[in-house]
């Protein structure tokens, strides 16, 4: 129901553009450094792990392909989403939760604004725009991480071969999957964060509880959804 109301508000006046910019800044720009860091190291780790397995089959030239596919299909979207869930589902839940217990949400309704429109819609939109972008950045930086391991460090392959291999291995299917997932995760993170925040009761203690619950529930749903999507795409 929250999802419906928040989505309907996207096309309804008044539109709180400033809140949207603010949220995109908080979610996107704020999460960029950590996303880059985690993306880079997941690429590094993937390449390191794969280097041993691939060398057993004498297929070290395939390292670019393996890294690209795992990153774009699964690791990039899921790791980024988990990161953002930890950082922003909790942030949203605690912010809205403290607004709830200090009666700011009631005050909004009493003073002429719809809290769903003012609080939920900008967060949902901002998340849907920024999470896919962050995921693309994480994927790309991850490929660079894999390259660092595969080429200068372990000399498994040449730079040209790595990038060529990585690029050609990605099919439309992978890209679609790699973009659909972060979009759905964004919806999960934003709505779970808002829902648990706005349902907070029981003072400051309640805010702590809502925050923890939001992260746990969002993370669980991320895994459930990724499993379902992967299952669908495997059959395609």
């Amino acid at each position: 129901m929250l999802a419906g109301r928040a989505t309907a508000n996207i096309v309804r006046r008044p539109f709180y553009g400033q809140d949207l910019i603010l949220q995109m800044d908080a979610i996107g720009v704020g999460s960029l450094p950590i996303t880059v860091l985690i993306g880079f190291f997941s690429g590094v780790i993937m390449a390191l792990q794969m280097s041993r397995a691939l060398s057993q089959y004498g297929a070290t030239g395939q390292v670019g392909q393996i890294t690209a596919i795992t990153l774009v299909r699964e690791m990039g979207p899921v790791l980024t989403a988990l990161l953002i869930a930890g950082r922003n589902a909790s942030g949203i839940a605690s912010e809205l939760g403290s607004m709830k217990v200090s009666e700011q949400i009631d005050a909004m309704r009493a003073l002429g604004t719809d809290p769903v429109k003012k609080l939920v819609t900008p967060r949902l939109l901002a998340m849907c725009v920024t999470l896919p972008l962050l995921t693309i950045i994480a994927d790309f930086v991850g490929l660079i991480g894999g390259y660092m391991v595969a080429v200068p460090l372990l000399r498994l392959t040449t730079g040209a071969q790595y990038w060529n291999n990585a690029w050609r291995s990605l099919e439309y299917n992978d890209i679609a999957q790699g973009l659909l997932k972060p979009f759905l995760f964004a919806v999960i993170i934003a709505l779970v964060g808002c829902l648990y925040g706005m349902r907070t009761s029981g003072g400051t203690q309640g805010v702590g509880k809502a925050t923890t619950q939001a992260v746990v529930v969002a993370s669980v749903w991320i895994f459930i959804v990724t499993a379902v999507i992967t299952r669908i795409f495997v059959n395609l």
Partner: peptide, 23 residues
């Protein structure tokens, strides 16, 4: 419904127990 309430509420002043000021 909430829309009709918005109109009614605009004639009511309120001070909330927890303040309800937007911080």
């Amino acid at each position: 419904d909430e829309r009709k309430w918005f109109d009614v509420r605009s004639y009511i002043g309120v001070l909330f127990q927890e303040g309800g000021l937007f911080d």
